[in-house]
Design a protein around this nucleic acid. Structure first.
Lengths: 144, 144
DNA sequence: TTAATCCCTATTGACTAGATAGAGATTTAG
DNA sequence: CTAAATCTCTATCTAGTCAATAGGGATTAA
């Protein structure tokens, strides 16, 4: 299951993506419209900023905007920031590989083989879905 | 990431599957060979028993054996017991559907559409891998 | 220079993961 | 019959994480 943080992050980013390329948007506006606790959202956006997914503009009339084109921000990108690796086991993570603590012999592990296949399948999907495709779906559904 | 409990469960079940169909195996033997904390394993096997994945035999010379043929116990079956639904969101879980707490309108949710595709991909993999295929891999690798 | 914004650190409460302890119930070997 | 070996159950503990909140400090536009 993804965390609440991930949900909020995705909703906030979709809000930014749907609102077009104009001026930066304030935290409070996003929080209001998407019903996200303001202070929590602050922390989330800060993290997203560190990885370049959003950009911030400080001072009066500041706010947040996407750090790169919506089509270049995938669901996988976002989930990796909020929830860590997509993989079901450290030993099959591509972005954050680590040997399992109690692993006998990785090359022979039957559990690993299955989890590796699962990771590839999930990553394939989540890397192909991005903010642009998602925003387009919303527009098509008349949810905007 | 899967839990430690899931890891232990899979290892214990693979041990049972690899050991063939003979007499029940004692918790202590599994714990020793697989280096799993004995008491923890006890609790895990108890849960697996409630769902029919293993069967227990009480009393002296008792122990545990698989509850059905190894080929009918998938990785998905096991993970659902130890870690809950495979889905990344309750609203895309097939076995344990639940509306998201703060969902505006499910039919229009762009996040849901992506998570649904991810779930289907993961489930497809994890339901096709079972204890028999995994044990066969082990044998082939000479890990037995 | 003031007011609106983002930035940072700390803290809280609830919950869960992982592990352990100790006694109870059941069955079989002798 | 009885003793020993097993599974069964309930309770507990510690450390860590999740979600949220608080209260200022730094920055910049009007």
């Amino acid at each position: 299951m993804i965390s609440q943080k991930a949900r909020y992050a995705l909703r906030a980013l979709l809000y930014l993506a749907s609102r077009g390329e104009d001026a930066p948007v304030q935290i409070s506006e996003i929080a209001d419209k998407e019903r996200i606790p303001r202070k929590f959202l602050e922390a989330i956006l800060l993290e997203l900023k560190k990885t370049g997914i959003v950009r911030s503009h400080r001072g009066r009339s500041g706010g947040y905007s996407l750090g790169r084109p919506a089509k270049d921000i995938s669901f996988a990108d976002v989930l990796r920031v909020t929830d860590g690796p997509l993989a079901l086991s450290p030993c099959v993570s591509v972005m954050a590989y680590r040997k399992c603590d109690d692993c006998f012999e990785e090359s022979v592990c039957a559990i690993r083989k299955a989890l590796l296949a699962a990771r590839d399948a999930t990553a394939q999907i989540l890397e192909s879905r991005n903010l642009a495709t998602a925003a387009a779906q919303l527009r098509r559904s008349g949810a905007l």
